[in-house]
Design a binder for these strands. Structure first.
Lengths: 220, 220
DNA sequence: TATAATTAGTGACTAGGGGTCATTAAAGAG
DNA sequence: CTCTTTAATGACCCCTAGTCACTAATTATA
């Protein structure tokens, strides 16, 4: 009997439709201004129905963020495959991150917005999926660093996971400063956001280069 | 006639008292959970009075953040004075930042929380003061980089302001990943937050070292 | 000192949004 | 055709940010 299966599909379809509508609303009005009523209207559903599919507003928001993370992860996977040398993989990931920011600024804003909230709060619903996705992304980065260490294009005295996590933090920091202060920086110092990303790449390139100065200790 | 002056002092005093009360409430309950009613109660005032001193909840929150920024700035100033060589000044600033995080986690959380919101929104009230303070902090960092370039302890082919801004972003990124994901990282990868800060310092040290490999282009 | 004017403070009230639930409509089973 | 199950609804509740007509206190004036 295929009825339950069809129902399941329809339910999933509706869920997707709601996320689509929510995306439009949240992205255009901003998460703070957008109301569940707005989303319901955009989805041509009643407000109560939204709560049949999502635990609450945050859960719905996290569903959107999960989409962003999936796109990002896909970009990272592609970046890793695009080159051979580990250091280039790392660089490609970095570029992919900044490309993502250029191409999907709304997702980036959303992600930054929720990056700053306590993650562990409630690991039910989409929160746990986001955590899992984040773990995958970290793993992809760590593998890239690892491969660089193995092929000698990244200095051997760093720990791949630590480095990947740190790089992840660093990139996010740059992305964030550009997203939130980019305008101000431009006005105040006449510096283009692009300059900051280039500065970033330059610094990281140096930092990971195996031909650098004898590290003052290295990462453990 | 000293009456207006005394009134001004009393007003300022009350303002400080309100911020004190708000700090307690916001820090203990979290910004999202804390209500203006809670703050009013803690300050032993009516809710309406809060709005005589602060434009709205966010403004009050920004007043708290401004305090945090002032502490941070003071720490940076001290750090810069604590050593001679520019590269050491930069490192000292970095350490000061992480010390600040250890000693004032509540301020850090508050600052991260508002770091992610659009800064330019409304430059009235405390928002503009926060912007100004941020500018000062950036300037302090830029001076440290500059002095390092001048005394040769930092490679000469970087732009001080760009580098300072980038470093600022990087540090914040690390701080943020530790603040929001520290627990998870520890569970998941068995990595101590402290390790990430050390990895960070190691990377930056390398990146700024003048004896590094011929940069692949440098920062412009 | 009595009175007017100014300033500080109040708390009931409004507006609006998140989330719920008794009820209705639709679909499938027997 | 009737009964059961599932999907959807929207009126409703509750909470909180923010307001404002009013009261109290302080200072200036007569």
């Amino acid at each position: 009997m295929g009825i339950p299966e069809r129902r399941e599909r329809e339910k999933e379809r509706r869920r997707v439709d709601i996320i689509d509508a929510a995306e439009k609303v949240f992205f255009s009005k901003g998460i703070g201004q957008a109301t569940m009523h707005d989303v319901a209207e955009a989805a041509e559903l009643s407000k109560g129905t939204l709560y049949l599919y999502f635990k609450n507003k945050e859960d719905l928001y996290l569903a959107i963020i999960l989409r962003g993370m999936a796109i990002l992860q896909a970009g990272f996977e592609a970046a890793v495959k695009s080159t051979e040398k580990g250091i280039d993989k790392v660089a490609a990931i970095g570029r992919a991150y900044f490309d993502f920011c250029d191409n999907h600024p709304d997702y980036v804003n959303a992600m930054l917005h929720y990056e700053s909230r306590d993650a562990a709060a409630d690991p039910s619903g989409y929160a746990s999926e986001c955590n899992a996705q984040g773990k995958d992304i970290t793993a992809t980065c760590a593998r890239a660093v690892q491969s660089g260490i193995e092929d000698g294009s990244i200095r051997g005295d760093v720990d791949p996971v630590r480095t990947a996590l740190t790089l992840w933090g660093l990139s996010t920091g740059v992305v964030q400063i550009i997203a939130t202060k980019g305008e101000m920086i431009k006005e105040l110092h006449g510096i283009d956001p692009q300059d900051l990303t280039e500065t970033f790449f330059d610094l990281i390139n140096r930092a990971l280069n195996p031909d650098g100065p004898a590290g003052r200790g290295g990462t453990r």
